[in-house]
Computed example of a mutant assay.
Amino acid sequence: MKEVFNNIDLPFNANTFDIISNRHESFDAGEVRRILKDGGYFITQQVGSRNNNDLSKKLLDNFQPQCPEYNLKHQKELLINEGFNIVFENEVLTQTFFYDLGALVYLAKIIEWEFPGFSVDTCFDKLCDLQTDLIEKGYISAIQHRFIIVAQKV
């Protein structure tokens, strides 16, 4: 196993791997195809573009997702266009529940790309509104967006 930081020019010979797995990282379908052996498999599990958008909209004025088309359909098309056969695919929208406002603040601070410009100071009034919701409902929910693709090089 080797960690790489440039997905456009991977430091591996062509036709090297039987299986490549990718979790939550970007990839270049052409490079993946180049380094996979014929008949090899690429397995990727990704966080989709709708992840936490509902929560970001509650916290941030004029929130716009950074990559609105990052979903199963779009990524699958990229792989098919590179000559992959899709063996398995699935996409799910599910909910996460926060039972503490501090946990939500922690998430928003560490996932800067989903909560751009978030700070407790700038979002204080909206955090107070969410705290009211938390007290009334017992939780704050957010949509999680995940998808998986298993593709075979043909």
Rank of each mutant, 00 (worst) to 15 (best):
Q152I: 11
L60H: 07
D61Y: 07
L59T: 05
V87H: 10
F88G: 04
Y70A: 09
D18L: 11
K109W: 00
L93G: 09
L93N: 12
T94G: 14
V120L: 08
D133S: 14
N62A: 10
Q95E: 15
R33F: 02
G117D: 03
G40M: 04
L78H: 09
I8T: 15
L107F: 10
V150M: 09
K126L: 01
V87W: 04
Q66N: 08
I86M: 12
Q152T: 04
F124H: 15
S21V: 14
F88S: 08
D133M: 07
Q131E: 14
I110M: 11
L93S: 11
F17T: 09
F115N: 02
Q66G: 07
V150I: 12
F147Y: 14
F118K: 00
A103I: 06
R50I: 00
R146S: 03
T94C: 02
D61W: 03
L130K: 05
I140G: 08
Q131M: 07
K58P: 01
F115D: 03
F12S: 00
Q75N: 15
D133C: 07
F84N: 09
D18C: 12
F12H: 07
D125V: 02
N52S: 09
K76R: 15
F42T: 05
H74R: 09
S21E: 13
F147G: 10
H145D: 15
K2A: 11
D38N: 13
R33S: 06
N81H: 09
S56D: 10
T122C: 02
G48C: 11
C128Y: 12
Y41L: 14
S56P: 08
I149S: 10
F124I: 07
A14V: 11
T132W: 00
K73G: 01
G83K: 02
H145E: 04
R50Q: 12
K73N: 07
Q46M: 15
A142G: 10
G102M: 05
F124T: 01
R146K: 15
S26H: 10
L107H: 11
W113Q: 06
M1R: 05
R33K: 12
S119K: 06
S49Q: 00
G83R: 00
D61T: 02
L60G: 04
K37H: 10
V4E: 09
L127Q: 06
N62W: 09
T122G: 00
Q46H: 07
I20Y: 03
L60E: 03
F63E: 02
L59Q: 01
P116C: 02
F63P: 01
G39F: 11
N62M: 01
D100E: 15
I86P: 06
F118G: 05
A108S: 15
C128F: 08
